[in-house]
């Protein structure tokens, strides 16, 4: 695998991550992420054949509860923090989704 990260790679990742980076940020992150990935590549030399992955360390315990409705946030509380709420309608307002 190549350890060289290009500006195009950074643009592709930024699009996946929903980040509109400035040109300056793209330059900086290309260099810094390449450094970090080059360092991180050392894990690839370790023999892990047959080793299971650890996603988390909590002991397998059942945490289910009865499927009964519980109290949750009121609609008024839920929209109170929104940058562009429509409180009377109980909705969050967003820019157009298609086109524009």
């Amino acid at each position: 695998m190549s350890s060289v990260l290009t500006i195009a790679d950074v643009e592709r990742i930024a699009a996946l991550a929903q980040l509109e980076l400035t040109d300056e940020e793209k330059q900086l992150f290309t260099r810094q992420l390449a450094d970090i990935l080059a360092y991180a590549q050392q894990v690839q030399a370790i023999d892990t054949s047959g080793v299971p992955a650890t996603a988390h360390v909590h002991a397998g315990q059942r945490t289910e509860r009865a499927d009964e409705p519980q109290r949750s946030l009121s609609v008024a509380d839920a929209v109170a923090n929104a940058p562009d709420p429509a409180p009377d309608a109980g909705l969050f307002r967003v820019p157009r989704v298609i086109g524009g």
């Binding site: 929903q18 509109e20 967003v94 820019p95 157009r96 989704v97 298609i98 086109g99």
Partner: peptide
């Protein structure tokens, strides 16, 4: 100033 933009632009500009 993202009111006239689409949702995608609002997301990515807000996050940046």
């Amino acid at each position: 100033g993202t009111k006239d933009q689409n949702l995608q632009t609002m997301y990515s500009r807000t996050r940046d």
